[in-house]
Design a protein around this nucleic acid. Structure first.
Lengths: 206, 206
DNA sequence: TTTGTTAAATTGACAGTGTCAAGATTGCAT
DNA sequence: ATGCAATCTTGACACTGTCAATTTAACAAA
């Protein structure tokens, strides 16, 4: 086994990957404040300063985690889309369901992805910078493509994109879980009952 | 002057308030990661362990900052509402404008308010706990009251609340500022062009 | 194979941080 | 004035990110 061969080796072999998965595990277990370079290093079985050779500081590791999160995010939406009926309404509805499914099942990661992390562009190593731009554009593209069939009276389909994205994102942010001491809510309407009102209005062909 | 009299005193006089305003200043200047108990203490002119007598740890101070943020948030929406025409549509539209105005002018604080901070209810001192529940309920009440006139076919007006809140919150979260390495956007449609589509559809009297 | 160069990981150190314990100071009711 | 409780300080500890110096491993060239 390759793993047994690499067990005693000085070089880890794939430390960058191991640190990202370790970070996601720690994030899911202990929340954002528990995400620590030293803990990731310990979980990957390396010394505390080893991550410095793969990430330009803690912020870069966080950005890499967000990039990985966007990959998972896009996957969830893709799967939801592919098992839906193949018409624009069903497709967009399924993608929103995937959006909310990811926000519900990976709440910590989802909220972590849309937080400011004080990352100046030059403080991120080039590898991580490429990953985050690719992954974030890809996950946004899923929703953008699904909105394309819905023409809008002004501004092309950008208006539809903005409306749908704002609606589903706000819904996910507010109701995926009650964060801390939010106002008490009654039963929250299902998103299935919300989106059609927006779509029917936006699509003159309907 | 009271201040000069209190300058050399051992007791600060109003350290709790001073710490909260110091925290908001630091948050606006250096971002969430710069918000530190020791920095707040230094800015308030007390020793590093003084805050422990007013807040049950850093998390409680953060929650107190969020409560103060909700007060400012509600004020902004109130002012926007009061200078609008007094009909349901204009009122709700103005409140959403206030919502976005706060998110734009206090972006750091706004995003900080809607982040998870790993606050177990029993880890927050009672004073702060009362403040956050009062303040968050008050700020949510502004939007709730503005949605009340718009009856909805199912679920009373809760559906309208959920729709409008999700829409404006998502819009604020996504477009108040480009956080870090988001996908490249074209021009974002103004919220004034978005909300009416939702309202007109939701209000059968229109 | 031997050698030299580079990448990868380790060790050690330093300044900050949250938090606790113990002591000192102040304000206030009695 | 006296005692008590609230308030603040000092000191300490473990943990964190980050840097510098060093050791180890991998690999290409001779």
């Amino acid at each position: 086994m390759g793993k047994q061969n690499q067990a005693k080796r000085h070089h880890h072999g794939n430390l960058r990957e191991a640190l990202i998965t370790a970070a996601i595990d720690i994030l899911g277990a202990g929340g954002p404040d528990a995400l620590t370079l030293r803990k990731c290093a310990a979980r990957a079985g390396v010394s505390h300063a080893a991550p410095a050779h793969h990430f330009n500081g803690l912020v870069s590791l966080k950005i890499a985690v967000i990039a990985r999160g966007h990959d998972m995010f896009a996957d969830t939406m893709h799967r939801a889309r592919d098992r839906a009926e193949q018409n624009p309404h069903a497709r967009l509805n399924a993608i929103c369901q995937g959006y909310l499914e990811f926000a519900t099942t990976h709440t910590d990661l989802f909220k972590f992805m849309f937080q400011p992390h004080g990352a100046l562009p030059d403080s991120i190593d080039t590898t991580t910078g490429m990953e985050i731009s690719r992954a974030s554009m890809a996950s946004y593209g899923v929703l953008r493509d699904a909105c394309a069939p819905f023409e809008h009276d002004r501004g092309g389909n950008l208006g539809t994109e903005t409306m749908v994205w704002s609606l589903v994102h706000g819904y996910a942010m507010l109701f995926s879980t009650n964060t801390t001491s939010q106002a008490p809510f009654g039963p929250i309407p299902d998103f299935n009952d919300i989106l059609p009102k927006l779509l029917l209005k936006s699509d003159p062909a309907q």
